[in-house]
Each structure stands twice: as C-alpha cells, then as structure tokens.
C-alpha cells in the first residue's frame, strides 16, 4: 500500500526541496520504490537539487493535460534505481494544475510506488493546497525561528481542514522536521529551543537536521545529501528520519556542538 507524503512549511526557504530530495533518496536507498513530485509549477527546483535538470522532457502539467503518459514524464535517478522524479513545469502557470488532473496522477503514482513524496510550493494557496490534498502523511519543515514556526502553525491548521483525509473524517499524520538547527547558537540561547518549538506546534518530532555546509555542497553537486556525503550529520539525520517514517521506533538524535580544533585548544579563553 503506497504512502503519500507532502513536504510542506508555508514559509519559503526553510528546506522543503532539500528535505524532499534527501528523504526520498534515503527511503529509496533501503530498496523501496520512491517518487518525488515537484508541485512548484512555474518555479521548479527539485529537478536541479536532484541533478536531473538536463533530463527533463515532460512534466506534471504535460501528464495532466494528456500530452504525455506518466511513464514518459518520470525520470529515473541515475544513482539509485528505485528513485524517480516527476518534475513540475517551468513555463506554465499554476492554474494548469487541475484538481481532477492531480487526483488522477496521484492515483497512478500510488499504483507504481511505495512512497509518493510531494514537494509543496511555499505559501498557502492553490499549489500548496493541491500538493497536500491527497497526502496520508505531512512533513512540516520548520526552522527554529519565529516566522517559520508561525507559518508552520498555519499550515498544520490547513492540513486538518482542507485535505481529502480531513474531509472524510480521517486525520492526516503530521510530523515535524526541524531543519537548520544550530546547536552552538541554541546552547548560547540565541535560537528557539527544540522543546519550545515542539510545545508550540505540538506535533510529533520526525527529526532534527543540523545546519551544515554539506547541504549547500549537495545542492551545488545536484545530489541529495544522503548520497553526496552519507556520513555527514545532516545525512545521518535524514536517514534516521526516513527509518522513523518506515515505522521504526528510534530516539531522535539531538545535534550537539562539534567544536573545531582551535575552539577546543582555546576552550574558555574566548
């Protein structure tokens, strides 16, 4: 039975696309069939972050409008055989996404894959609503920062009211993914504490992704971070989150400050 996930946040720039790519790759690396779907029509970027930008022929809108078959628009990842991407259109506008069209594509994807991961556009409008509409699970990506937490709260409200599951009296499963967490700043009291964010949003924690230079390196290279540097702290955190999605009960690793050599030598002097 396929699971449909939406990666959403309300606010832009918090790490939705990075997280979609990393979680999709992490799940596919365990041998499951995964498709990542870009819903950001007009401003697609998942293809670029996944390193598939040169291979896009058809996109989600082409499939919805019947110009291409789904199998023709899916791009198979060159590194992981069980990972595919369905790109968004770069040229059409978001009105080309119809509710019926999206429903039909999602139904087809459910047949083909174990996991369907929808990368939502920022905002709370049509595109974001369509991205979350068919989801069984939602991953709410949040930075430990006031505006991000506020927008996440808004999105959580929408997940509980406008999705198909909610309309049918069910409940969409929500998970908090805290990204760009800086343990050093948190230790100095300069950043919202994890407990505070959890208390305010009160949804279960899926993982904490530490702020890391490896994330930028991964997008530079066009590879999900779990592939480009699998042993790095963010990659481990994503891999852990993926295992939790699969139902494993794992304690969430809280990133700790990793002091550099100089900082350790001069400990207490600065």
């Amino acid at each position: 039975m396929a699971k449909v996930l939406v990666v959403t946040s309300g606010k832009g720039g918090v790490g939705k696309t990075t997280s979609t790519a990393a979680l999709g790759a992490a799940l596919a690396q365990t041998g499951q069939n995964v498709v990542v779907v870009d819903f950001d029509v007009g401003l697609r970027n998942l293809d670029l972050v996944m390193g598939a930008e040169r291979r896009v022929v058809f996109d989600l809108i082409n499939v919805i409008q019947g110009d291409a078959k789904l199998s023709q628009a899916l791009i198979r990842d060159k590194r992981i055989e069980t990972l595919s991407i369905l790109p968004a259109s770069q040229t059409r506008d978001k009105d080309a996404l119809t509710a019926e069209g999206v429903a039909s594509v999602m139904a087809q994807l459910r047949e083909k894959f174990d996991w369907v991961i929808c990368d939502s556009p920022a905002g709370i409008e049509r595109g974001a609503q369509l991205a979350m509409h068919h989801a069984d699970h939602a991953i709410v990506v949040t930075n430990p920062e006031v505006s991000s937490v506020r927008d996440s709260d808004r999105i959580i409200g929408m997940l509980d009211s406008t999705t198909e599951k909610a309309r049918n009296g069910g409940k969409i499963e929500k998970h908090l993914l805290l990204t760009r967490y800086d343990p050093a700043r948190a230790a100095r009291g300069e950043m919202l504490r994890i407990e505070d964010v959890l208390e305010i949003l009160s949804i279960p924690l899926l993982g904490i992704i530490p702020e890391s230079e490896e994330v930028l390196r991964a997008s530079n290279l066009g590879a999900p971070v779990t592939l480009s540097s699998p042993d790095s702290p963010p990659a481990r955190a994503y891999a852990e989150a993926a295992r939790r999605l699969e139902g494993e009960k794992l304690e969430v690793t809280v990133p700790v400050e990793r002091k550099g050599l100089l900082a350790r030598l001069f400990k207490g002097k600065s």
């Binding site: 291979r55 022929v57 199998s71």
Partner: peptide
Amino acid sequence: VQVKLDRG
C-alpha cells in the same frame, strides 16, 4: 514509447 533527453 519512451523519450529521453540529455542536455549538454
């Protein structure tokens, strides 16, 4: 029918 592209 599959159409593949690799832009260089």
